[in-house]
Simulated assay, not measured.
Amino acid sequence: MLRRAKITIIGAGNVGATCAHWCAAAELGDVCLLDIPQTEDMPAGKALDLMQASPIMGYDSNILGTTDYADTKDSDVIVVTAGIPRKPGMSRDDLLATNAKIVTSVGEQIKATSPNAVVIVVSNPLDAMVQQMWKVTGFEPSRVIGQAGVLDTARYRTFLAMELGVSIEDISALLMGGHGDTMVPIPSCTSVGGIPVTQLIDSARLDEIVDRTRKGGAEIVSLLKTGSAYYAPAAACAQMVEAVVKDKKRVIPVAAHCESEYGVGGYYVGVPVVMGAGGVEKIIELKLTDDETKAFQNSVDAVKSLVATMNDLLSA
């Protein structure tokens, strides 16, 4: 019997609720929006509000807000946005330890209620959180994926389009590595209407745009004053959900579990993949230049250090 895909979003804050909005509006499936019991009826309120928008916007997705993991049973795709943002006075290790514990709890629930789901992790620090989710669930690594590359690449494409005054539709770009300051641009895989970007923007200016991309999230935080980005992160999640529920075979950058690929050796790091119904169906290995290889290895080393710190904090 055919049925709609079941999409669960864990964490009903700005990113989670906006992801629910994008997924419902695109009719990717029925949506379950979950948050912790302490939020009481908040997820139900957001879900009902989204349902009431459906006659106006013309979508038929059912949206349920809940604090009970039983309602998420047998989800096809689960997006995990749960976690806390870094607050004033909080150290990087405090954030890492707190969110690792939250992701551990969430992973245990997912394993019990939706053992066949594809899990997309958004919680930060991303590269460590997706590693922990994979460890806790015990799922095949292809079914546990980190969302960062889609967002980072979208920011990069936006800044390139703004710089050149062209349509974002004509910008094709790729960023690899960890999410944050060590992300690695791949100029050879960046083009504008098929024209290599290096023919349109000089290297110094391109470096400035890459630097702005690396700091893209912080720039929005500084503008908002309170809170952080959520429209673009949520849209990036929805694109990944679509790739799974429609078996799109999208070639996109995600945080995927690499063993022999790129010589990573068992860690999650941003790489281009083919993403479909099975999650990460193939990791695409590029021939990187010497400079790109060096930068990528530096990024991988930063991810390994982050994971090691997380493991130390969790075992303390």
Rank of each mutant, 00 (worst) to 15 (best):
E261G: 05
L224K: 13
C237H: 01
L164I: 03
S299N: 06
G270K: 01
P185V: 08
G263V: 10
V184W: 07
R205Q: 07
D202E: 13
G227Y: 01
T289H: 04
V303F: 00
V271N: 00
E292C: 09
L288S: 06
M183C: 13
V241A: 02
C189H: 15
A204I: 14
E163V: 08
E169V: 05
V274W: 07
M176P: 00
G194S: 11
G194W: 11
S188Y: 09
A255D: 14
G263R: 09
A238Y: 05
E259K: 11
A302Y: 04
M310V: 05
V166M: 06
I252M: 13
P187R: 07
I220Y: 12
F296Q: 07
K282V: 07
N298W: 08
K294L: 12
T309S: 14
M240Y: 01
H179M: 12
I195G: 00
V244D: 04
L286T: 05
F296K: 03
S172V: 14
V264L: 05
P185T: 05
E281H: 06
K282T: 11
K248L: 15
T226Q: 14
A238Q: 10
L164D: 07
S222F: 11
V166C: 13
T213K: 04
G279S: 01
I186H: 10
D170G: 13
L200D: 08
M240C: 13
S305R: 12
A255I: 06
D301T: 14
L306E: 11
T289L: 02
V273K: 00
S203A: 15
I168Q: 14
G263P: 10
A308C: 09
V280P: 00
I171Q: 01
Y268L: 00
S167H: 05
Y268G: 01
L306M: 11
I168Y: 04
D170C: 06
I220C: 07
E169A: 12
L175R: 09
K249D: 15
E292I: 11
C189Q: 15
V271D: 03
G227C: 03
V271F: 01
S260P: 01
I252D: 04
V280R: 03
P253F: 01
A234G: 12
V300F: 05
D181K: 14
I209Q: 02
G263Y: 09
C189E: 15
T213P: 00
G217D: 11
I284E: 13
P187Y: 08
G263K: 11
K294W: 10
G180M: 01
K248Q: 14
V264N: 05
G270F: 03
G266I: 10
L286I: 08
R212I: 11
S260D: 13
K282W: 02
G278Q: 09
A173W: 06
T293M: 11
A302S: 13
E163K: 15
T198G: 06
E285K: 10
S260H: 13
E285G: 04
V241Y: 00
A236L: 09
I252W: 03
P187H: 07
M240D: 10
